[in-house]
Amino acid sequence: MSGTRRTDERNGRLGGVLSGLAVALGCLLFLGGFIWGAFVYQPYTVPTGSMTPTIDAGDRVLAQRIDGTEVHRGDVVVFKDASWGDLPLVKRVVAIGGDRVACCTDGKLTVNGKKIDEPYLASGQPASLNGIPSTTVPKGRLFVLGDERKGSLDSSVHLQDAGNGAVPRSTVAARVDAVAWPLRGMLDRPSSFSSLPGGVSQPGPIAYVVGMVVVGAVLIFGGAAWGPITGRRRRGASGSRDRGELAGVS
């Protein structure tokens, strides 16, 4: 039986090594995911319901830090324009510099004459409450609307401002990728903008960040539990052999 015990000891040492490696790798992934996420993403609490039903007042969102030059139509962005107030605002980009935007044709927003389906609007909600006269967005600017068109203070109510109500790209600080709390997951990229020049933006790395954190946590807890579990099994198996030996001797 001594050979069996030596085998058990070798297996136990190997299990301990593998358990330690799992915990170490898990810590690397877990901490790496958090560090990567903190570097790329900024959390924001949305103060108003102007983006309902996509984002409700009080929701906590994760927004990828980007440069304003990276913004595409359909993106939900965080920006701060002094002429609109002192607080960061969250709106959806519906047109970019050079576009001609208007509302409404057959009840729909149009961009460069193309009718835009907006599945993010609440059922039965008009694309614009008071209409938007045909407006050309100046170069380097973004025409933004809230998804709650009845009460959002957006480009449609700033049409008399400089830039025809559009905000400079330089005011954009981040693009919202997901609603973190309450947990609603990733925001969809509206396909209705994909046929326009430049298409839509690609999601940020949030799925990879979350995956790293989750896999890291599983490895940490799994690796930490492996040692005690296998230890109990070895002790149980050793006790059974000892009892068998004693029975044989008797």
Rank of each mutant, 00 (worst) to 15 (best):
A22M: 15
T48N: 07
F34H: 14
F34I: 10
T48A: 11
L29K: 11
L31S: 13
C27N: 03
S19M: 05
M51P: 01
T52H: 09
R10E: 00
A38D: 14
A24C: 12
E9I: 07
W36R: 11
Y44I: 05
F30N: 09
G16W: 12
T54Y: 09
R10Q: 02
F39H: 12
L18I: 09
T52D: 14
L21I: 15
V23C: 07
G15T: 06
L28M: 14
V40Q: 09
G20I: 06
L28G: 08
G32V: 11
T54N: 09
L25R: 02
A38S: 15
G33L: 13
T52S: 15
Y41V: 03
C27Y: 01
I35Y: 12
T52K: 11
V17K: 00
N11C: 00
V40M: 04
V40T: 11
M51C: 04
G32E: 13
V17T: 08
F30A: 15
R10I: 14
I55H: 07
S50N: 11
T54I: 03
G32S: 14
P43V: 04
S50R: 00
A24Q: 09
M51L: 06
G37I: 07
V40K: 13
W36Y: 12
A24H: 07
V40L: 13
G37D: 11
R13C: 00
L28P: 08
T48E: 08
G32P: 10
L14R: 10
G49N: 11
P53W: 05
T54E: 12
G26F: 05
F39S: 15
G37F: 09
P53N: 04
A24W: 08
G49C: 02
Y41L: 10
G33F: 07
F34G: 08
P43R: 05
P47Q: 02
L25V: 15
S19F: 08
G49I: 01
V17S: 00
T45E: 13
N11D: 03
F39L: 14
S50F: 03
L14C: 02
G26A: 06
L18T: 05
I55K: 06
G26L: 10
L25H: 01
A24L: 14
A38C: 09
G33W: 10
P47T: 01
S50Q: 09
G15Q: 06
G12M: 06
W36T: 13
A22T: 02
M51V: 05
L14N: 07
W36F: 15
L21S: 01
P43C: 02
P43Q: 10
G49T: 01
W36M: 11
P43E: 05
G20R: 04
F39D: 14
G49P: 05
L21R: 06
L18E: 00
V46Y: 10
G32H: 12
Q42S: 13
T48W: 02
E9A: 04
T45I: 15
G26Q: 07
R13P: 00
G37E: 12
L21P: 03
G15D: 00
